[in-house]
């Protein structure tokens, strides 16, 4: 048990907080117009400096993912979840598939073999109840 245990100690914490919030929004854990924890609640809960938390929240506000209602708190901007999922889909090819295919090329794995693996997996996935 260490302070802010859930966060790794190599990356800026505000970045990790922002990423988590984005994840929650993308996975609809935080749905449209849902109120998010206040920075102070978040800070106290995770034992993190409130200024660090505020910086992460501000980044999402600047991104248009959250909006503020004065005196009430912060809420998820409608459509944010869909927007993030769109972004992630388009990044999937570049960030995830790209390195995989590069590696496959280096290892001289034929494209057909890779396609076969993907088809087999998706069949298995479909075949599951």
């Amino acid at each position: 048990m260490s302070a802010g245990a859930a966060f790794d100690d190599r990356t800026a914490i505000y970045r990790q907080i922002a990423d988590r919030l984005r994840d929650d929004i993308a996975r609809s854990v935080l749905s449209d117009d849902a109120q998010v924890m206040s920075t102070n609640q978040y800070a106290a809960f995770h034992r993190i400096n409130p200024a660090t938390v505020a910086k992460a929240f501000q980044e999402l506000v600047d991104d248009g993912l959250l909006y503020k209602r004065r005196g009430v708190g912060m809420f998820v901007t409608p459509g944010s979840g869909e927007r993030l999922r769109d972004e992630r889909r388009s990044r999937f090819v570049l960030d995830v598939l790209g390195p995989v295919l590069d590696e496959a090329e280096r290892l001289a794995i034929p494209v057909d073999d890779i396609l076969a693996v993907i088809r087999a997996r998706s069949t298995t996935a479909k075949g599951r109840p």
């Binding site: 206040s38 609640q41 106290a44």
Partner: peptide, 8 residues
């Protein structure tokens, strides 16, 4: 741990 803040 509670999430409400101590208000002094």
């Amino acid at each position: 741990m509670t999430t409400d803040t101590h208000t002094i």
